[in-house]
Computed example of a mutant assay.
Amino acid sequence: MAKHTITLNNGVEMPALGLGVFQTPTDATTSAVAEALRVGYRHVDTAAAYGNEREVGEGIRRSGLDRDEVFVETKIWISDYGYDATLHAFDKSAGKLGVDHLDLLILHQPLPTAFERTLDAYRALEELLANGRVRAIGVSNFMPEHLDRLLQETSVVPTVNQIEVHPYFRQTSLQRLHAQHGILTQAWSPIGGITSYRGGEKRSFDDPMLLDIAGRYGKSAAQVMLRWHLQEGRSAIPKSIRPERIAENFDVFDFDLTADELSAINALDTGVRSGPQPAAITLDNYGMAIPEA
């Protein structure tokens, strides 16, 4: 049976399943976070670029839980890369969230067109880690060449790399590299939601094989996919604002997929990325000012 928590490479315990709030409207974020924490989630993943950190913080406060009961993860946007700018970006995010420390702070994109700024941003994360302002640091959407250079030129191995992973896109070679260095694979779009709104030829939710497995356990295709992530040792960040879906996505700790079922899900991989190519995220195309707290 997959555990509820995962131990990161620096010894920090992180809840394996978190609520994601990408593209969650600000007027729905607070209630979604509060509902998720009521259901049992203890991990919320947001980002400066999502524009809803303040509402995430309010949802946590509204839950009535103590600060140390909720694992708070956010991301620095590329516009705030650079040593001093990233230190200030921490202050902006912490201020909006209403917290004095973050459990996990990660760089949102590799920014290969200005990778020296990326390295300086990561060095700022190392400083925040050293002085106790964050408990763990990591990256997101880094490809092997980005990780290789980061590992060569900085001191702290990232605890996580948050990347697109779902049954139709597994990034197996990147996951193998993570395993070699003790980096946790954290899946965004873990149930393939991006295959629905990006207009792909097929949606993971409708996959006959996933629906067949789901029927054997009285579960949904989404629950099967989340279970697959957990049993393979990944962290997963599903998103929803609907209370029934929030609860459904957390109800995945009471069944085990067989080895054959896991293999069948792995075989669905198409190798086709649905999200943007990391190299396409540049300051010219995606740079934007992140507001002050």
Rank of each mutant, 00 (worst) to 15 (best):
K3N: 08
T5R: 00
T7A: 06
N10K: 05
G18S: 09
G18C: 00
F22R: 01
Q23K: 00
Q23M: 11
T24A: 13
T26N: 13
D27A: 15
T29A: 08
T29H: 09
T30C: 15
S31I: 13
A32I: 05
Y41Q: 02
R42D: 10
H43F: 04
T46M: 07
A48R: 01
G51L: 01
E53T: 04
G59A: 12
R62V: 13
D66G: 14
E69Q: 14
E73C: 10
K75V: 03
S79H: 14
Y81W: 02
Y81G: 14
G82K: 01
G82V: 11
T86D: 07
L87M: 13
H88K: 09
S93T: 08
K96S: 15
H108V: 13
Q109F: 14
L111A: 11
T113W: 02
T113I: 08
T113H: 08
F115Y: 14
E116G: 12
D120N: 15
A121D: 06
Y122F: 11
N131P: 00
V139M: 01
V139I: 14
L147V: 13
L151Q: 06
V156P: 11
V156L: 15
V156N: 06
V157H: 10
P158S: 03
I163D: 00
H166S: 10
P167R: 02
P167D: 13
H178N: 05
Q180F: 01
Q180I: 09
G182D: 12
G182R: 02
T185N: 12
S189Q: 03
G192R: 00
I194Y: 03
I194N: 06
I194C: 06
Y197S: 14
K202S: 12
K202N: 10
R203D: 09
R203W: 02
L210Q: 06
A214F: 04
R216C: 08
R216H: 04
Q223C: 13
L226A: 15
Q231N: 00
E232I: 04
S240R: 03
P243D: 10
R245E: 07
A247I: 06
V252P: 02
V252H: 07
I265N: 04
I265E: 04
D269L: 04
V272C: 14
P276G: 15
P276N: 15
N285R: 15
Y286E: 08
G287N: 03
E292H: 06
